[in-house]
Computed example of a mutant assay.
Amino acid sequence: MAENRASVYAEGVPCWVDAQLRDVEAGKRFYGELFGWTFEDEWYGSFAEALKDGEPVAALVRKVDGRLPTVWTVYFATPDALALARRIRSAGGQVVSAPVPAGDLGVTALVTDPEGAVFALWQPDEHAGFGKRHEPGTFAWAELYARDTEAANAFYGDLFQEALFGPDAEPDFGRAPVSDRFAAEMPPHFLVHFAVEDVPAALEDVTRLGGRVQVPPFETSYGTVAVVTDDQGASFALLRR
């Protein structure tokens, strides 16, 4: 397990991502070839931690209920998950799963913003989050696709003021209207972005491995992005800065 990096991730900074999959072994094959990840099984095989050059970068989690969505989830760092969950509820969000210990790794909770976009909280103990990011094959950005970006800016701006606007801000987190890239009926959601050196080449790899292109490459203020799904239907984005 990586050393504690709690001081690296201020409250409101994306510090971890995981994918809820029906078939973790298939996920290992897909992401292992796409991003060059290796894996260590944790908690008797209930999830696999993905490593890039020996450093933790993500996890693949076996779904306990087949009715749950196949999705990537972004975790925001916090020193106190219980207090943050209370603030989220007070601001109009919902607590889907109250803060609970994840063994000796940390404390986690699943929450939503007022529009229903799902995200997670992570209060670190032995596992502080990413050991590597902003490099090819690792987390690079999280974009919230919201129906009301002004309301989203107000909610997250109040919730994560220092991380988004403080003197040492490193948000790795933006907001955009759902209608910018998706059909009007798409619900508000977070889209996890992974860095790649070459978006067209990565798209070829995605399709070769059984995934598909959901949104072809487009330009943003933070780089060139394409939205894809893996071979089990989990959506994520490829980003070339």
Rank of each mutant, 00 (worst) to 15 (best):
G45V: 08
E55F: 14
F76R: 04
V61C: 10
A117V: 01
R5W: 03
T149D: 05
L60C: 09
A50H: 04
F182E: 06
P216A: 12
A120L: 02
E204K: 10
A151F: 04
Y31K: 01
A140K: 00
G129Q: 01
A176M: 05
A152V: 04
G54F: 09
S7Q: 13
R62Y: 02
D205T: 15
F182M: 07
G174I: 07
A26Y: 03
D158F: 10
E11R: 12
V118K: 08
A102R: 11
E115T: 00
P167A: 06
A102C: 14
E197N: 13
G131Y: 05
A140T: 00
R208C: 04
L60D: 04
Q94D: 15
V100W: 11
P69I: 02
G54V: 06
D41F: 04
S90F: 09
G12H: 00
E40N: 09
Y75P: 00
T108C: 10
K52Q: 13
L209F: 09
A142V: 08
W122L: 02
F194K: 03
P188S: 10
A202F: 06
F218C: 06
L239I: 12
A26E: 10
P188R: 07
P167V: 05
L159K: 02
A140C: 05
F218T: 01
A120Y: 10
V227G: 10
A226M: 07
W72A: 09
T224C: 12
R29P: 05
V71Q: 11
F165L: 11
P79Q: 07
E150L: 14
T73H: 06
F194G: 03
V8L: 13
R22F: 06
Q94T: 14
G137L: 08
K52A: 15
L144I: 02
L34F: 00
V199N: 01
W43G: 06
E170H: 13
Q20H: 11
P69N: 08
R22N: 13
E33H: 11
A152R: 00
S179Q: 13
D198Y: 10
T149P: 04
L110I: 14
V213M: 06
V96T: 05
R29K: 14
D148H: 06
P177Q: 02
P177W: 04
E170K: 13
E55Y: 13
G93F: 10
